[in-house]
């Protein structure tokens, strides 16, 4: 165990999250794949949808922080040193990014599939 073993990492996260870990990993993988597929299909980024997704992402970041505070039994006055603020930014950023990609992708595919349905 001189190097960090991915299996150890997996074991710890499995203990922490249980089957939820697989669900989360599947969401990340499928979400990313769907996002990339959407970009290819639409040949670029739809700017107005991205802006709307970013707005929802701002709320997603807040939700990530609330979730983090709940599971770690923390309050909103606990941050002290620089690493605390880095961690807060990291959690917020991940929540925002995840929500943004999810909203953008779901909205994009919904629109595409509707259009296909209307055309067919």
């Amino acid at each position: 165990m001189k190097e960090l073993d991915p299996m150890i990492l997996l074991a710890v996260f499995l203990e922490m999250l249980g089957p939820l870990l697989w669900l989360l990993l599947a969401m990340v993988l499928l979400g990313t794949a769907a996002f990339v597929a959407l970009l290819v299909r639409e040949r670029g980024i739809a700017a107005s949808r991205l802006v709307r997704a970013q707005l929802v992402g701002l709320v997603g970041g807040v939700l990530a922080l609330v979730l983090m505070a709940t599971v770690s039994s923390s309050g909103f006055t606990d941050a002290a040193g620089p690493i605390d603020w880095i961690l807060i930014v990291l959690v917020y950023g991940l929540g925002m990014l995840g929500t943004m990609v999810l909203v953008y992708t779901v909205a994009g595919w919904t629109r595409l599939l509707r259009r296909q349905g209307a055309a067919g």
Partner: peptide, 10 residues
Amino acid sequence: LWTSWVVKTM
């Protein structure tokens, strides 16, 4: 640090 508390609780 809050981070150390997070390490402990989570």
